[in-house]
Amino acid sequence: MLLRKYFPSNLVENTPLSTPIDKLEFTVFDTETTGFDISKSDRLIEIGAVKVKGMQVIEESTFQTYVNPYRQISREITELTGISDSEVLRAPDSLQAIEAFLELGNESSVCFVGHYIAFDLYTIKYELKRHKLHWKMPPAIDTLNLIGYIAPSYDMRDLEKYAREFGTRIYRRHSAIGDALMTAYLFTELLQRCHDRGCRTWGELLRIGEIDR
């Protein structure tokens, strides 16, 4: 497939590595899909995002949209996410939804943040590829990497279990905006713990939290 043009992430570039982490802004986001085969048959059905600034969640900066996958949503996915065919019928297509997400103030964020964020990034990447658009994987921090730094003995994957373990807020699971908010509050707690352990700058945070691109 010939990819026609590059699609920007709209993140701030060239942030000095010496910048204190409490002076940084992040975009925490999550996606819901029709399944896990995102490179082939499965499609994006929801994007949720929220900003973290000054190591605080900015709840008034939330973003949420359903996405029309132009295919039927299985009963299992509807039961898991609460998203039905009727809810996405008049929703924007994936390109419109991703454009709205990436244009919503991300120019002040240094990177994306998520819980097992590689899946969400590849979901965006493959949806853009279907529109013949190339998306270079942006800087991203995975909360799992931060947990591995703070508590390497933990061997869980579930976001809610980590949120409970670290005493942060619980939101409705398998909702993109709910998971984004829960991840954001978990992220701020992890940031504070990293800070307390001597991780004070953007460069130090990248070293322990950034995913391989």
Rank of each mutant, 00 (worst) to 15 (best):
E13S: 15
K136M: 07
A91I: 03
D196L: 09
T33R: 03
K129R: 03
I47L: 10
W135N: 02
I38Y: 02
F166S: 09
D93K: 06
N14I: 11
E59G: 08
Y171S: 12
N106V: 10
H131K: 03
V67G: 09
A184P: 12
F7M: 11
M55T: 06
P8M: 09
H134R: 10
K161A: 15
D155N: 04
I21N: 01
D93G: 02
R207T: 08
G148M: 04
M55R: 01
Y126A: 00
H195K: 10
T19V: 09
E59Y: 15
R172Y: 10
L95V: 04
S84M: 03
F63K: 11
L128Y: 00
A100R: 13
I170F: 14
T183C: 15
G167H: 09
N106H: 15
K23H: 11
P16K: 10
R207M: 05
R43D: 02
V12N: 14
S84K: 02
L206W: 13
G148N: 09
N10G: 04
E99N: 07
T62F: 12
E46Y: 08
H131Y: 01
T15N: 12
P152W: 11
L133N: 02
Y66D: 00
G167L: 07
L104D: 14
S108P: 02
Y185I: 10
E76A: 11
E204H: 00
H174Q: 07
Y6C: 14
M156K: 05
E60G: 14
E210I: 03
Q64L: 12
E127G: 02
E59T: 15
E189Q: 12
S74N: 03
Y126K: 01
D179T: 06
A151Q: 07
Y116I: 03
A118M: 07
P16V: 14
C194P: 00
L144Y: 10
I147E: 06
R173L: 08
E87I: 08
K40Q: 06
A180E: 14
C111V: 06
L11D: 14
M1Y: 01
P138G: 13
V57P: 15
L102M: 09
P139L: 14
D212Y: 12
D120L: 08
C199S: 06
R213C: 08
T34S: 05
T65R: 10
A180C: 12
F36K: 00
P16Y: 13
I150A: 03
D37H: 02
G114D: 06
Y126G: 00
W135H: 05
V88T: 03
G54A: 06
L190V: 10
